[in-house]
Simulated scan of single mutants.
Amino acid sequence: MPSPTTPLVPEPVRRLAAWCAVVLLAAGVVGIGVWLCVVFRTAVTPVLLALLGTALLGPLHRRLVRMGMRRSLAAVLTCLAVVAVAGGAAYIVATALIKTGDQILGALKQAGQELAEHFGAAGASVRDLAAHAQGLLARLGGTAASGLLSSLGAVGAMTATSVLALLLMFFFLRDSDRAADALRSLAPRSTGDVVEAMARRAYGAVEGFMRGTTFIAAIDAVCITAGLLVLRVPGAVGLGALVFVGAYIPYLGAFVSGSVAVLVALADRGWAIALWTLGVVLAVQMLEGHVLLPMVQSRTVQMHPATVMVAITAGAGVAGVLGMLFAVPLTAAVSGVVSEIRARYAEPAAGPGPESPA
């Protein structure tokens, strides 16, 4: 019979129960937070877009402020730069896709027919996907009243979201010097330093991810577009624009855009040019994976590819394409917070024992 001082539950079991309670509590808080974000996605989406834009263009704003410009004027100029760059890029991408969209979709359908003759179901799936995409584009660009109204509604919602995100980005840039004081006022006095440090680490991770991803996307798009132009693949500029946009969804976006380029080359130029296109895509991906990503991630928070893929899958399941776009920056922010907590609360290494008296 155990003595009165012996606990009924062993110490390892109690520790396991405590950790299970902590994990369940954290999972519940995260689940409620995700549910609230989905419910209020109309308001959450502009905030997240503004935060990503602020993280990307924050260095430009800080440089203008260091040059002696007022914070409000610097924020206005930064926002105008966003409008000019994003508007110009959107115009170039849209123009390229509109001019070559039918050609790309026709090449995909032809590639699907050729693959269906050799591989059966796989080629039929590609052909059906191209047909559905062409039908969707036809419905979006149709002149029927219902299609026009739905298109106008979608454009209006996107415009409202973009304008709200731009206004929020202006305020985030202008008042960024007050963010630390705002966090300290919300946090208890004893945890103000910790909350500020975690917020700075999370924001730094997102800032590094956005700058690095934009840099990598530009290099990928330029290299692949140049290769496609040399190989005389139709719709090279549109495919390059697709590569640039897809680069903001790591791994999956590069795979999809590269596959589309190879299929278009297969349909229009034959197997030889398709293999050369595949070589160009693989060479660019090797450059990204072995040179660009290590160089970029060495200056930001490092995430394992498996973590990125799980985050993208979870984001797609929660919020579709927007979830895939926001999943990796949010994961980078969480990883930065975890790293800060681990650095602050890790057990100190055991130092040398006390010196023995002489």
Rank of each mutant, 00 (worst) to 15 (best):
L231S: 01
L231D: 05
L231P: 01
L231F: 06
L231T: 00
R232P: 09
V233N: 00
V233D: 00
V233Y: 01
V233M: 06
V233W: 03
V233S: 06
P234S: 05
P234E: 02
G235C: 03
G235N: 04
G235M: 04
G235W: 08
G235V: 08
A236T: 01
A236C: 07
A236M: 02
A236I: 03
V237E: 07
V237C: 08
V237N: 01
V237F: 11
V237S: 01
L239G: 02
L239Y: 04
G240D: 00
G240A: 02
G240I: 00
A241S: 11
L242S: 11
L242E: 05
L242D: 01
V243E: 02
V243L: 03
V243N: 04
F244W: 12
V245P: 10
V245R: 05
V245L: 15
G246R: 13
A247W: 07
A247I: 08
I249F: 11
I249C: 01
P250D: 08
Y251H: 05
Y251E: 01
L252K: 03
L252Q: 06
G253L: 12
G253I: 08
G253N: 06
A254E: 09
A254F: 13
F255N: 10
F255L: 15
F255W: 11
F255H: 12
S257N: 11
S257Y: 09
S257A: 15
S259K: 00
S259P: 03
S259E: 04
S259T: 14
S259Y: 04
V260F: 08
V260T: 07
V260R: 03
V260L: 12
V260D: 02
A261R: 07
A261D: 04
A261M: 11
L263H: 13
L263V: 11
V264E: 00
V264G: 00
L266P: 01
L266T: 06
L266E: 05
A267Y: 01
A267V: 07
A267R: 02
D268V: 09
D268C: 11
D268N: 08
D268A: 13
D268L: 02
R269S: 11
R269N: 12
G270Q: 09
G270H: 08
G270I: 06
G270M: 07
W271Q: 08
W271K: 13
W271Y: 03
W271T: 15
I273W: 04
I273N: 11
A274V: 04
L275V: 15
L275C: 12
W276T: 12
W276Y: 14
W276P: 04
T277H: 12
T277W: 10
L278M: 12
L278K: 01
L278N: 02
G279W: 05
G279C: 10
V280E: 04
V281F: 04
V281M: 02
L282C: 14
A283Y: 10
V284S: 09
M286Q: 14
M286I: 14
L287T: 10
E288I: 08
E288Q: 13
E288Y: 03
G289E: 06
G289K: 06
G289D: 07
H290K: 13
H290A: 15
H290I: 14
V291M: 12
V291R: 13
V291F: 13
L292Q: 03
L292V: 08
L293I: 13
L293A: 15
L293H: 14
P294L: 10
P294W: 09
P294K: 10
M295I: 12
M295Y: 14
M295E: 09
M295W: 15
V296T: 12
V296K: 07
